[in-house]
Design a binder for these strands. Structure first.
Lengths: 164, 164
DNA sequence: AAATATATGTCAACATGACTGACTTAAAAT
DNA sequence: ATTTTAAGTCAGTCATGTTGACATATATTT
């Protein structure tokens, strides 16, 4: 007997396909963050610290406001994590040269070393997935993920991601 | 002057490409979860509740153990969320027929309705990204995300995702 | 039948990382 | 001189994760 769902409901396959895509993203993201989480545990840092180290590493000299804007958390939330990273010598602040209210953020030697260590496992995972999937698939991955980014600030985000 | 990085370090472009892919996933996942989060707030539910509703919805009659295995959290963590959902009538449990120690999980009418509502915004987002990107890109997206899933249980996960 | 293992639930204590709201300080902009 | 902005801080709350210890019912093994 033919499956009633596909006969009677032409949207079924499409909905099913979308649900699969959603779960795939869930599981991929879960495993994508597992490696860094493991390493950071040794330093008693969490995912929040990781994000700060990552973005400061890629945007040396960025201000606190810029970081808040990327992370989309409150400054109170950031502050606990950030002051912890500063106290423990992974990040340092310098007063802005033009605008002296700003605190520009930099990784210390130690911070850079941790960033590298954590980043490496993640890059190796992605590199391996890219190798397995092939160049065309990688282009597709980028296209789809780009489309998932909120349209309202997609350009802003892409500029940040692509402009190193 | 030519950029020294690309001249002296042939790995630079590759590393940069990988870092971009990583950030892309971060931002895409952030916006991918924003829609559901917004809706769930009205119900005073969080992302944890969403995950439970999602997986129970797609695996009606699954046991608590199976759910724990998917979510990778402790049963104490799950219990808080799950008993909340049961109390408020979004999920119901039935004793397993073969193994009466098991509690099999089902969405109630209300649960199914919430699942649909939340799922819809997420499916619409993914559908829109898929449309923009095209069929070939979608295949690539799937390939790469599959490769990001931990190899040790990739088959298990894929079976769960693809076998509806 | 008795002992052991498994599925589930529960109590308590704690950590992390989010939130809101109120307030301060220094510097820039008007 | 006044207002706005960038950053920091204090205090309290919530959501979601963790350990560890223990209870109960049912299956499985001996």
């Amino acid at each position: 007997m033919t499956d009633l769902k596909s006969v009677n409901n032409p949207l079924f396959l499409r909905e099913e396909e979308l649900r699969q895509a959603i779960e795939l993203l869930f599981f991929a993201y879960r495993d994508f963050t597992a490696g860094p989480d493991q390493i950071l545990k040794d330093y008693k840092f969490g995912r929040a610290h990781h994000r700060v180290i990552h973005f400061v590493g890629r945007n040396e000299g960025m201000t606190v406001s810029e970081l808040l804007d990327i992370l989309r958390i409150t400054k109170q939330s950031l502050n606990r994590v950030l002051s912890n990273l500063i106290q423990r010598g992974f990040i340092e602040q310098r007063q802005g040269e033009e605008d002296r209210r700003q605190r520009c953020l930099y990784l210390t030697e130690e911070g850079r070393s941790l960033e590298q260590k954590v980043s490496r496992v993640q890059r190796e995972l992605v590199a391996s997935a890219f190798r397995e999937a092939g160049g065309e698939a990688v282009a597709g991955y980028r296209k789809v993920l780009t489309g998932l980014i909120d349209e309202a600030n997609r350009d802003t985000v892409l500029n940040r991601v692509l402009k190193p």
